[in-house]
Amino acid sequence: MVSANLQTAGSAAGMAVGIHGVSHSFQLEDRPLPVLDDVSIDVQPGEFVALLGPSGCGKSTLLRLLAGLDQPSEGRVVGDGADITAPDPSRVLVFQDPTLYPWRTVQANVALGLEARGLLKTQGHRVGDAIRLVGLAGFEAAYPHQLSGGMAQRVALARALVNDPRLLLLDEPLGKLDSLTRLSMQGELVSLWQRSGLTALLVTHDVEEALILAQRVIVFSPRPARIAAELVVDRPYPRHRDDPHLVELRRQALAVLGLDS
């Protein structure tokens, strides 16, 4: 894999994130559907936290709150001490579904954030760097309908990274990748995170992935999501999945999720 140097602009230290007593519910027809139930998490600047939980428990909803796309029904979400009330390019969300713009080429999709903020002229070179980072050099001129699902997902990742975020919210960004690409992208994610010092929140279904990548794994209960367990993964990088410490943590996590037969 090409090791592109997507240099951060220096200032970009990670963002401190606070989730204080957040509850959220959606209005379904006539009755409310509680999705998050009194969730509190504190994330240090530059920390890598993974969120694990059963499907439909409210993980994506939590990330949308952190991105500022929705407001919590109760409680506060805070970035660097200030309430998060609106989206901001310093907090970038990589959606579960890549949702690339079908009318834009890969290049133009990745350039979206720079273009929106009028930085394309001065920082356009970052686009190529980001595309190389996700291993899609040569596909700059392709349209989304010409990409595979995994490639589209990688473009979505590049589209987020190009903005040099201080908080990276990842909603199963490696979900559609084959296991080989997945492994190398995990490595890239870790080294990107280590290089840039950004804060990362990763939602995943994959217990192993959470343990390989994150310093802390938060396990949610089924909907409405409550924090069921918190595992600290105090192992140096790069990690190996057969590390006995990780195997033990994996067993614990699965037990919390109710999957230890």
């Binding site: 949308r64 796309l69 989206p87 901001d88 959606f95 579904d97 949702t99 713009y101 979206l112 929106a116």
Partner: peptide, 16 residues
């Protein structure tokens, strides 16, 4: 709707 959400998280203005 997600097209708008994407652009908004990347700092797009209403005009954009």
């Amino acid at each position: 709707r997600n097209y708008y959400d994407i652009a908004r998280t990347l700092g797009a203005s209403q005009t954009f």
